[in-house]
Computed example of a mutant assay.
Amino acid sequence: METGTVLQLPENEARRALECDGGNRSVDGDATSSNPFAGLVSHLRASWLSGKTRPLEYRVAQLEALGCFLDEKKQQILEATASDLGKAPFEAELSEIFLCKNELHETLNNLSHWMKDKHVDRTLAMQLDSAFIRKDPYGVVLIIAPWNYPIQLFLVPLIGAIAAGNCVIVKPSEVSKNTERLVAEALPGYLDKDCFAVVTGGVQETTRLLENKFDYIFFTGMSQGKEKRPAWILSSLPFGGIGNSGLGLHHGKFSFDTFSHHRGCLKRGMGWESLNAPRYPPYCKKKFGVIQATSKVTRKNDCTLL
């Protein structure tokens, strides 16, 4: 099985771009006006900025739609993978359908819990505040899939990206032509077209697609020569099977975390500000003693010999 490489690109300034020229400027303004995918990326970004993908109910509905796709297109998937790769029905149903449905059910069973803020330890100066990590979506995500598991290795990352609240463009492998055609023709009928899209083509089309700004690119594949894989075309797009790459980073909660921006948040408890009075002048040893007595942290099993 090919390994995947995760690449997080610098966050684009989409909101600032929308404010330029009275909102008439393209969100992806640095992509050339002739780029065939600029309009699609801008449309998805506008949908994401509207907050449409953030509610739990919306994410669940889109994930359930993926389940319908797997159920209703099962026979077509088996036929396409048999034609492209010579996969036996047993192997195709196990690797391309069964495992994907397991992933989908795991996500649906746990998504509400994964989305919750994670409260973290606070320092002395923040004892009266609330400190937590919030999982926000990145924005517009690109998933580039390989040929050898043409359904599983785009659908499993897609599940994580949808669960995290992103808008997504999927680029299936052009090598598995029948599966690519099936995904391009059938999948958009199940998902919200304002937030999700499928782009097809080879090296030339992928190169033009990568000229646009994405908030996260998830690439699964390996190089097969300079004319085969986009990793050779875009020097900033890594590939291989080390570091942040591999199936482990698009499986279960790892997939949700991969496509989530873990944002550190601190909410100041101003209503308790009167309790901070000992921290302010005039200073005296009595005030320090009060702070020390109420806030000191000691090592366990620490003792003093007299």
Results as ranks from 00 to 15, higher is better:
178 N>E: 14
178 N>R: 13
178 N>Y: 14
179 T>M: 15
179 T>L: 09
179 T>Q: 08
179 T>A: 06
179 T>E: 04
180 E>I: 11
180 E>C: 15
180 E>H: 11
182 L>K: 04
182 L>H: 12
182 L>P: 12
182 L>A: 11
182 L>Q: 00
183 V>S: 04
183 V>H: 11
184 A>Y: 06
184 A>W: 05
185 E>D: 13
185 E>W: 00
186 A>W: 02
186 A>G: 00
187 L>M: 12
187 L>H: 11
188 P>V: 09
189 G>W: 11
189 G>R: 11
189 G>M: 08
190 Y>K: 12
190 Y>D: 12
190 Y>A: 10
190 Y>E: 10
191 L>W: 10
191 L>C: 05
191 L>H: 10
192 D>R: 08
192 D>A: 03
192 D>M: 06
193 K>F: 01
194 D>A: 08
194 D>S: 10
195 C>L: 00
196 F>Y: 15
196 F>Q: 05
196 F>P: 01
197 A>F: 06
197 A>G: 03
197 A>R: 12
197 A>T: 00
197 A>M: 03
198 V>T: 09
198 V>L: 01
198 V>K: 01
199 V>A: 08
199 V>W: 14
199 V>D: 05
200 T>Q: 05
200 T>I: 11
201 G>Q: 13
202 G>D: 08
202 G>M: 03
202 G>S: 14
202 G>C: 05
203 V>H: 06
203 V>W: 01
203 V>E: 02
204 Q>H: 07
205 E>V: 03
205 E>Q: 14
205 E>S: 08
205 E>L: 01
206 T>Y: 04
206 T>I: 05
206 T>M: 03
207 T>S: 05
207 T>R: 13
208 R>L: 15
208 R>V: 01
208 R>Y: 12
209 L>K: 04
209 L>A: 09
210 L>A: 02
210 L>T: 00
210 L>W: 04
211 E>R: 07
211 E>K: 13
211 E>C: 11
211 E>G: 14
212 N>D: 11
212 N>C: 15
212 N>Q: 13
212 N>L: 04
214 F>N: 09
214 F>W: 08
214 F>E: 04
215 D>R: 09
215 D>K: 07
216 Y>V: 13
217 I>Y: 09
218 F>K: 09
218 F>M: 09
219 F>K: 11
219 F>W: 05
220 T>C: 15
220 T>A: 13
220 T>I: 15
220 T>E: 04
221 G>F: 14
222 M>F: 07
222 M>H: 14
222 M>K: 12
222 M>Y: 06
223 S>K: 10
223 S>V: 03
223 S>F: 02
223 S>W: 04
224 Q>C: 03
